[in-house]
């Protein structure tokens, strides 16, 4: 089980490198979405590993509500981009 978690940390590094390298803001938003989902799934894996229901509930909440920040951010950035071009 710990090996699964270590593999997930390795997978977490991929969008981190992507966010560091690519200058395009939408690529960075994609990396943010990837990291936000991966970290909440990792919280769920840790909850199962430690058999802790409290952390499990927190993981489910972050997974379901956490992407709302991404939606709000994407909406405003899109409007700023439209204003800059038009």
């Amino acid at each position: 089980m710990t090996l699964v978690l270590i593999a997930m940390i390795g997978a977490l590094l991929i969008p981190m490198v992507e966010a560091l390298q690519d200058e395009d803001i939408w690529q960075r938003m994609l990396a943010f979405a990837s990291i936000a989902t991966k970290t909440s799934v990792m919280i769920l894996v840790i909850a199962v590993l430690q058999d802790d229901w409290m952390i499990g509930v927190v993981g489910v909440l972050i997974l379901s509500v956490g992407n709302a920040a991404l939606m709000l951010l994407a909406h405003i950035i899109k409007r700023v981009d439209d204003a800059m071009e038009g």
Partner: peptide, 11 residues
């Protein structure tokens, strides 16, 4: 956007 990544890892 980077602050969002930082927040996800901190959580």
């Amino acid at each position: 956007v980077m602050r969002g990544i930082l927040g996800a890892i901190a959580a």
